[in-house]
C-alpha cells in the first residue's frame, strides 16, 4: 500500500530544500526588481514566479507523486487562465484605437464624467 510506505520512508528533507529554494527565489526577484532590465524585467519576474509556483505545486502539494487526473486538472486550469488572458489581450492589441477606454478623468484626461 503506497500510503503506508509513505509513512515509513517519509522524510522532511525535500520540504526543507524546497523552502530554501523559495526563499532564494524571493530574494532574487526582489533584488532584480530594483535593477532596470527594460523589457526583460517582466519576463524574468514571471519566470521566477513560475519556478516558485511550480516547486510549491510539485513538492509542497505533492503533485509529483499524484495520479494523472490531478496533474491534468491543474494543467488544464492554467491553460484556461492563459486562454482567457491571451484571447482578450489580442483584442486590446488589435483593436481600433478609439474604441479603447480613454482613461480616468481624475488624472486630468479629456473625458468628462458621465452623469
Amino acid at each position: 500500500m503506497a500510503h503506508n510506505d509513505h509513512a515509513h520512508t517519509h522524510s522532511a528533507r525535500p520540504y526543507i530544500l524546497t523552502f530554501m529554494w523559495l526563499c532564494f527565489c524571493t530574494v532574487l526577484t526582489y533584488t532584480l526588481a530594483h535593477k532596470d532590465l527594460g523589457a526583460w524585467s517582466f519576463a524574468i519576474a514571471m519566470a521566477i514566479a513560475a519556478a516558485k509556483g511550480l516547486s510549491v505545486i510539485l513538492f509542497f502539494m505533492h503533485l509529483y507523486d499524484q495520479p494523472g487526473p490531478s496533474r491534468l486538472t491543474l494543467a488544464i486550469a492554467f491553460f484556461f487562465v492563459l486562454l482567457v488572458i491571451t484571447l482578450t489581450l489580442t483584442d486590446v492589441h488589435t483593436r481600433f484605437p478609439l474604441s479603447l477606454p480613454p482613461g480616468s478623468f481624475r488624472s486630468g484626461n479629456v473625458v468628462p464624467p458621465i452623469q
Partner: peptide, 14 residues
Amino acid sequence: DPAHGGDPVLFQHM
C-alpha cells in the same frame, strides 16, 4: 466603467 478608465468590453469578454 469608462468614466474611470474601465472597459465594458472586458465585462463582455469575461
